[in-house]
Design a protein around this nucleic acid. Structure first.
Lengths: 123, 123
DNA sequence: ACAGTAGTTCAGTATTACTGAACTATATGA
DNA sequence: TCATATAGTTCAGTAATACTGAACTACTGT
């Protein structure tokens, strides 16, 4: 098992960030890690959607996020503690991550609202 | 040849936008269209990189940008006039596109500076 | 040592992307 | 009208990525 690789902040690319976050599952994982103050472990996201995500898939998603420079993972015993690299990235590309996470939140709200309108059990 | 399809603004997704712009060529095409005040035709980007881009590939790139909702294409005789949908998108996801284009510009500048430092014909 | 947990790696499969060749559609000139 | 040229699309074969079950590594507790 080779050690975890994290790119230097200067090797982080906009395209890599956009690609990593262009997948719904990864975007959700990143947003969740970014929103919380505690590190999150990978297996916290096994039940991310209606279909439970296979753990090999989950592992790949974390690898993509890590190699894009979005998260930093640290082994703690048997588990991985994941935190974001928002501060570093925000220094390199000011405003990029906040704009994306805001857009994702906006989209989620709109989606929830549309769902409620079209027959969810809204009041 | 079927007519050009543009998604309604409410069907435009953050993931779709990020995916479309996660490719260097497409990011460059979009940035160029966004930066200019005149519509751009597809073939203006045939010589986008060192290797000339095949026109079938270019056509696909425009299709991806169009279907992501980033550009609007209109037939004018034999050519396609492409403009961005920045205003609409900025209304739906405020600040998202400016942040991405700013980041792309920043990255380009950094890259050019690094190139100059490491042996380009800097002053 | 054994069992349990967290995550990775591998390999087969499925999906997506790239691109040369053939094609459509429009414009222009003889 | 017919030939030619230009701009872009579609198709089909191939290449590259992504997904995922199974086997594996690494660590923890008993």
């Amino acid at each position: 098992m080779r050690p975890l690789q994290h790119p230097a902040i200067n090797d982080v690319s906009v395209e890599g960030i956009l690609h990593a976050l262009s997948d719904s599952h990864r975007a959700h994982i990143f947003a969740t890690i970014a929103a919380g103050s505690q590190p999150k472990i990978c297996s916290a996201f096994l039940e991310i959607s209606d279909q439970p995500l296979p753990k090999s898939t989950l592992s790949q998603h974390f690898k993509v996020l890590r190699e894009a420079g979005l998260i930093r993972s640290e082994r703690r015993g048997v588990e991985l503690h994941n935190i974001t690299r928002c501060e570093e990235i925000n220094q390199r590309f000011p405003g990029l991550l906040p704009a994306i996470t805001t857009a994702l939140v906006t989209q989620k709200k709109r989606g929830a609202a549309a769902k409620a309108r079209s027959g969810g059990q809204g009041r």
